[in-house]
Amino acid sequence: MSSNYPESDAANSTTSSNEHWSSVSKHVVNSYLEANNALLAAMGLPPSSETEFGTLTARNRPETAEEPITELAFGDEAWLMERSVDSYEDLAVGEYVRFTKTIDETDVSAFAHISGDTNRLHLAESFAEQTQFGGRIAHGTLVAGTISAALARFPGLTIYLSQDLEFRAPVEIGTTVTAACEIVEQLGDTRYRLHTTVETDDEVTVIDGEAVVVIKESPSD
């Protein structure tokens, strides 16, 4: 069967695609290496600094916040967090956590590679421009993941039981979003119902929903 595309165009398309996924793979592998280094450090072993893609640079190495939250493995200095209480014993109706980060190009590319969601709406600008959105947007579930990030910042150990989501608006790549989780009902000793939202930096609510979680006291290190 003949092709409508010249061989040179097809080759260029293949090369461009390979370069794109090579870039994505570098980001994913480097992220994996950092998580592995954290495990090695906990075991008292020296970290690994090399991958098949070369040495990690300061640019792609996650930075640890100056005052990290002890419940979390690591953070990034560009991420912002606000919470109403710092003690597990003070958790009650009305307490909240807010988590802020920018959904950037590397987030979208890595999420597409890891999840397998390679919808062209998120990855191909020429295709996305022809849609109702007029350009590429971030995956809805990637944006919703910031809710999980906020939940992880409650004092104690948070475990998801359920999450209802309503996607109200798209999120353009490069947008800074804030996920907010507020306890609205205590369902038992350790079970809570929360109102969960994600807003853009211009205060547009892009996700609204409700979660049920268990928050237990953190095990001692």
Rank of each mutant, 00 (worst) to 15 (best):
V108Y: 04
M81T: 15
M43V: 00
V198W: 09
I215A: 01
E7L: 04
T178Q: 10
R136W: 06
N12R: 14
A58W: 04
S84F: 07
R136G: 02
E77L: 01
T15I: 08
E63W: 02
G156R: 04
A179M: 07
Y192I: 04
T146Q: 13
A152S: 14
W21G: 08
S218D: 13
V184D: 10
V198S: 11
E52D: 14
V206D: 08
A35P: 03
S23A: 07
T15F: 03
E203K: 06
V108S: 01
N30G: 04
S8P: 10
N60D: 15
A41C: 04
L56K: 00
L45Q: 14
H113I: 00
G116Q: 10
Q132P: 06
E217Q: 15
T64Y: 01
A112V: 10
T158G: 02
N4E: 12
S31Y: 03
T15H: 09
S13Y: 03
T57S: 14
S23P: 01
A149P: 11
F111T: 05
M81I: 15
E67W: 02
A112N: 11
N36T: 04
F167L: 14
V85T: 15
G94Q: 11
A10R: 15
R136I: 06
T70C: 01
R59W: 05
Y32V: 06
Y96H: 13
Q132C: 00
V85R: 05
G54W: 00
N37S: 02
I183M: 07
A150V: 08
A38Q: 14
Y192L: 03
G156T: 07
S48Q: 10
A78P: 04
